[in-house]
Amino acid sequence: MTQENEQLLQTPLYSVHVECGAKMVPFAGYEMPVQYPLGVKKEHLHTRDAAGLFDVSHMGQLRLHGEGAAKLLESLVPVDIIDLSEGKQRYAFFTNEQGGILDDLMVANFGDHLFLVVNAACKDQDIAHISKHLPEDVKLEVIEDRALLALQGPKAAEVLSDIQPEVADMLFMDIKKTQLDGIECYVSRSGYTGEDGYEISVPSDQAEALARKLTAYEQVEWIGLGARDSLRLECGLCLYGHDLDTTTTPVEASLLWGISKIRRADGERAGGFPGAEIILEQIATKDVSRKRVGLVGQTKAPVREGVELFDSEGTKIGVVTSGTAGPNAGKPVSMAYIRADLAAVDTEVLAEVRGKMLPMTVAKMPFVPQRYYRG
């Protein structure tokens, strides 16, 4: 065993993955299942057709306690946290002074505290970032004793409501504390596949029992990181460290929908987050040099991360940040940053793959419809 392997962390479900024949790989400091014997493509299709279970326990789970928690968080993200209703969650991102994105995260309001889920690779820096700005009336609690499962797909609600009927009434982005098979869980109706489904925070020592209960349903299969990546990409969802980073602003990233109107209008709560001046100026002038776009391949060859993009004259105009064969899209799909003047839908660009110039077309995202349950 290499020294690197010895230093990798394991989720509470590690032994279950090994038992189920998962191929384990290093990811964000953890040994994680990239695929199971079913294989990435079949796992992907199964999630779209039925239900997939994902171990996402490597993500960071945090609590913010105190009356000033919402105000504190609102000073770090361009999102309306103060008006976030109890029992609801919202997508947000931390920004830096240059307007770049430090991480994206989910924020939920449990009434007596805010519950945050942050990316695994950014967990330590996010904790440090929040801690640096903590006022005296707010306490940050790092949750060390809970695992995180995601049950995703059109059959997810059928399965989970068989265990706990009240989850059937939840809508997209609702969150609640509830008992699943006698285990106290935090259940949100959300996920990272574009499908209907749930994310479930469960005590670490009961995660295996709940996972086995869920995978005992014939509709449910274990799904690895490989299919998680192709599923989120088909639905136009960004992966931090690939499609988003500290040098990319939300405007360049086409994430304007993630900036609450109250934080960009003329009002007392406009701005007030790191990099606000730069971001609000970009919104007002629409003046950015590059934009995140979707690309659809005109050939069958997948166009992966790192592939350079050119115009018809051979001038480099951008780079691919994520790419997949598109099992449900039925054609190769990618995300890329390209020169803003070429970001219009239906613009043709050329991707250089192994010395060949492959034609691709700028397309609207998502590449397959999102199917969140909104009632």
Rank of each mutant, 00 (worst) to 15 (best):
V79Q: 09
E208A: 14
V107E: 02
L171T: 12
A50V: 00
D112F: 01
L358N: 00
L295F: 02
P250A: 04
L8F: 04
C122W: 04
F273Q: 06
E184K: 10
R212T: 07
M357R: 07
L45G: 02
H242E: 01
V288F: 07
D205V: 13
E208I: 07
T247A: 11
E43I: 12
V333Y: 09
S201E: 03
M1E: 11
K88G: 07
R354A: 13
V18A: 11
V16R: 10
S161E: 10
C20F: 08
E184M: 13
E158V: 13
T321K: 07
S322T: 15
L342Q: 09
R189D: 00
E141C: 12
I259H: 07
L102G: 03
L13K: 06
S260M: 12
S230H: 04
V303F: 02
V319E: 12
K286N: 15
R374F: 13
K41S: 04
S260I: 09
A325W: 05
L256R: 13
K132T: 13
A50W: 11
R228P: 02
L239I: 09
Y198K: 03
I127C: 01
V118T: 15
S260K: 10
S85E: 14
E348R: 12
Y36Q: 01
N96M: 07
C235N: 03
K42C: 08
A351V: 07
A227F: 06
V293H: 06
R292L: 14
D229Y: 04
K331N: 12
R263I: 05
